[in-house]
């Protein structure tokens, strides 16, 4: 049963003195109850716009969206009590303590003074912020702020949770901690829409993944389904000498299903192939015959990065590609 239903959602930003930006360009999306949907895309793909439209922060220009059958535009006041939102930037009051921030959120959900205090304490303890709870948030680390923000999002135990890039800007350790928190949240049956630019994150947390680019959905499915879309396996080579790149590339192109991808100073090459082991054997044979020396060679299942590369023609993580993305 779809819990979040989105049909033909369009949002156009019209910056003064610049061309209009189609942040959302007719997006359809269904999220089943109790599942985690990962919305995967680079910066400027429209992920945050999507979250903002669903959480009543902005009005879409066309299309419509419902959560549990409630229209997010027409009945915004009925949406707010059932959603929890944790945005890309921790929405906390710097001058309030961790505890005061959470208590305020509870009071604004109209949970009453006593219940708000009790719940705030419960969350502070669960998120391991007990020691810092009476210090102003100003002095908190990025990870601690995010945890306060996430605690605010789940304060009223909402049936739907929106997490907009929950680990962007966190150090690896905090990111792992955040993943644990999110994993335990979703084990409780909360329906989650999670945006991320990290393929690993979507792979790890989401049941289903929607790939978004330039305001359009370009692929949808489980991580495995998406990986299957781009062919069976990948051959990866690392050359001893980058000068051999063109010859090695030519050999890979003949045995692969697409143009080989070149990275790592021209020394790393990869390509998707059909019959993996056989293709690898042939490639290695030809490389040997051509006298090309290898640092490393192997086969692996494709990652979501390969999926993204195949679908959009650019990598999901690279900064340069992102700039190009915003312009298009």
């Amino acid at each position: 049963m779809s819990f979040i239903q989105i049909e033909g959602l369009v949002k156009i930003y019209r910056p003064k003195g610049a061309d209009p930006v189609h942040a959302l360009d007719g997006v359809d999306l269904d999220v089943r109850q109790g599942t985690v949907r990962g919305l995967l895309g680079p910066n400027g793909a429209g992920k945050t716009t999507m979250v903002k439209a669903l959480t009543t922060l902005i009005k879409p220009d066309a299309g419509h969206a419902t959560i549990d059958g409630i229209d997010v535009v027409r009945d915004a006041h009925r949406i707010r009590p059932i959603i929890g939102v944790s945005g890309q930037y921790a929405a906390v009051d710097e001058n309030l303590t961790g505890f005061e921030n959470l208590e305020m959120v509870g009071r604004l959900y109209h949970l009453g003074a006593k219940a708000s205090k009790r719940r705030a304490q419960e969350l502070i303890d669960a998120f391991e912020l007990t020691e810092a709870q009476n210090r102003p948030v100003k002095g908190f680390s990025g990870g601690m702020r995010r945890r306060i923000d996430l605690a605010g999002a789940i304060f009223s135990r909402p049936p739907v949770l929106f997490l907009d890039e929950p680990t962007t800007g966190l150090d690896p350790r905090s990111r792992l901690g955040m993943w644990d928190v999110i994993t335990s949240l979703v084990s409780e049956g909360t329906t989650v829409l999670l945006t991320t630019q990290y393929l690993e994150e979507a792979d790890r947390l989401a049941d289903d993944i929607s790939v978004i680019d330039g305001g359009k959905l370009i692929a949808e499915g489980t991580a495995d389904e998406l990986k299957a879309q781009i062919g069976g396996q990948q051959i990866e080579l690392t050359l001893m000498d980058a000068a051999d790149g063109s010859v090695a590339g030519e050999i890979l192109r003949r045995h692969g299903e697409a143009q080989p991808h070149v990275g790592g100073d021209g020394r790393e090459l990869s390509v998707g192939v059909r019959e993996g082991p056989l293709a690898l054997e042939r490639v290695l044979g030809e490389l040997n015959a051509a006298g090309i020396r290898l640092h490393d060679a192997g086969m692996r299942r494709p990652t979501l990065d390969d999926v993204f590369l195949k679908l959009t023609g650019h990598s999901a993580g690279g900064e340069e590609e992102q700039d190009g993305e915003v312009e298009s």
Binding site: K52, L57, R80, P81, V85, A91, Y109, G152
Partner: peptide, 8 residues
């Protein structure tokens, strides 16, 4: 944004 998504 936090305030605006709360039922206040």
């Amino acid at each position: 944004d936090r305030f605006r998504t709360l039922p206040m």
